[in-house]
Structure formats: C-alpha cells, structure tokens
C-alpha cells in the first residue's frame, strides 16, 4: 500500500542565518517505510537534483541512541507515546496529510543546520556531576551491596533516559528538568550513590541553570513526550534532593 504526503520542513543553512520552511511533496510512499527513511528518500532526490539534502540527526534507528529528534506536527517525536522519531512509520500517517517538521527549539539547543541542533548542554549537565566517582580498580564485589529488586527497578526506570532532549523540546519553558532529574534520581536511589548525593544534585542543577534552560512549571508535558516514559516523580525527587542540599 502507498500513500502521498506533503512535507513542510524547516531549512536553515547554519546557526548564523535565518531559516524558513520548504515544502516537498512525496508520492507513492510505501507505508512500511520508516519516517526517517522517507527523509532518506527525499534526500536522495534532492542530491540528484543538485540540491543540498536536509540535515537531520539519526544513528541507531531503533530507538535507543537518542540521536534522532524531530518536532513533528507540533509534538516531540510525533504524536505517539513512548517512541522516538526513528520508530515512526509511514503507516501511522494519513494519505494526503501535511507533515510539519521542525527542529527542537530552545535557546540551549542552537540550530546547527536544518533540523540538527546542538545538544551539548545536556552533556555538560552530566559532566558537572552525573556520575559516581568510582575509579577503576577499587570496586568491591558486586554482590557486596544488597539492592532489592524494587530499588534496582526504580533506578533503572530513571536510568533509561536516552538524552534525546524531547523533554526540553516539548516543554513550554524549554526546561531540562526531566533530563537532569532522571540522572539525579537514578544515582540518588542507589546505595552506591549516597556519598556524593548532596554535592551531585547541587552541581547538576546549577549547571542546568547556567545553560539557559527554562524553569519547570509542572505542566508535565515532558512526561507525555518522553520516548522512554520517564516519570515526573523523578523531578519531585530532584526537588527534594536539592532542597535538602540547600538546607544542610
């Protein structure tokens, strides 16, 4: 089965220039094609027409690396819950539909080219403290610490974050709270993380603030568009952790 769609795509040469929308018509699209394969096909056409293909971020194409991220028809990673852009398939779109594709929009994520944005601010938050300072060589036996299943699962649920930035993109304030909270929470839950707990949350949140993200106003849009369904309960935990570190 095939469908026809119209793509309205943001084109921008680089960070310095102003961008604009371009419209492309794609006909007889195999519905088994993934959304990014549709863009591949379009790009091949553009190259053959001597035009510059559309830049968009992607890598693993199976929803785990966190590289891809497009704002599709007004939602981060499209309208489906719990999926990344690369997991969208054309069968999820209607025949004759106009699909508007925009880059993540945030001051902290400047556009590099077309749909590609610079998400290094997220790396900086992790660098500021998103780890346990455990040098190689000194670790005790892995079973020396007992961590019950509930705690391990809870930590895992936070650690699943793929760092795609959808939370920032969809938040009306372009806040990176869910991203930061996921890491703070993952490490704060585990017994191994207790030593640096207070320091870590301070350093990470302060770094987040330095990178011109907005503030959280508890709209919880991030939770809805997170491809890994990370809960806003982790934001609450971060708020608690930070409050504790400010007060002590």
């Amino acid at each position: 089965m095939t469908i026809n769609v119209k793509l309205k795509i943001w084109r921008q040469k680089n960070a310095q220039t102003k961008g604009k929308f371009e419209t492309y018509v794609m006909e007889n699209i195999n519905i088994h094609l993934s959304f990014l394969e549709l863009l591949d096909e379009l790009n091949e056409k553009l190259i053959k027409n001597d035009e510059i293909p559309i830049s968009f971020s992607h890598d693993c194409r199976e929803g785990i690396c966190g590289t891809c991220g497009l704002f599709i028809n007004g939602r981060a990673h499209g309208h489906l819950r719990g999926v990344t852009t690369c997991q969208l398939h054309m069968q999820m779109f209607k025949d004759g539909e106009t699909i508007v594709i925009e880059p993540w929009r945030a001051r902290a994520f400047p556009v590099i080219k077309d749909l590609v944005v610079d998400r290094s601010a997220l790396d900086k938050i992790i660098q500021a403290g998103g780890y346990m300072s455990a040098n190689v060589g000194g670790a005790a036996d892995a079973d020396a610490i007992f961590i019950t299943k509930g705690i391990a699962d809870n930590a895992f649920a936070a650690a699943k974050c793929i760092g795609c930035g959808a939370c920032v993109a969809t938040c009306k304030n372009a806040s990176a709270m869910l991203f930061t909270a996921a890491k703070v929470s993952h490490l704060a839950i585990l017994p191994q993380g207790q030593c640096e707990r207070m320091r870590r949350v301070r350093k990470m949140v302060d770094e987040m603030d330095r990178n011109s993200f907005g503030n959280c106003t508890n709209t919880y849009a991030c939770e809805m568009d997170c491809p890994k369904n990370i809960s806003i309960a982790h934001i609450a935990r971060m708020n608690r952790e930070y409050l504790r570190s400010v007060l002590t």
Binding site: Y131, A139, A142, I145, T148, K149, A152, H186, Q192
Partner: peptide, 14 residues
C-alpha cells in the same frame, strides 16, 4: 555496579 549500573536484582537484593 560501583558506577551505579542498575543490573537486574532479585527480591533478596542479589
């Protein structure tokens, strides 16, 4: 484990 990788555990914590 020292780095905080959340490996699967059983109810007893192992």
């Amino acid at each position: 484990v020292a780095q905080g990788v959340p490996f699967a555990r059983d109810y007893g914590g192992l």
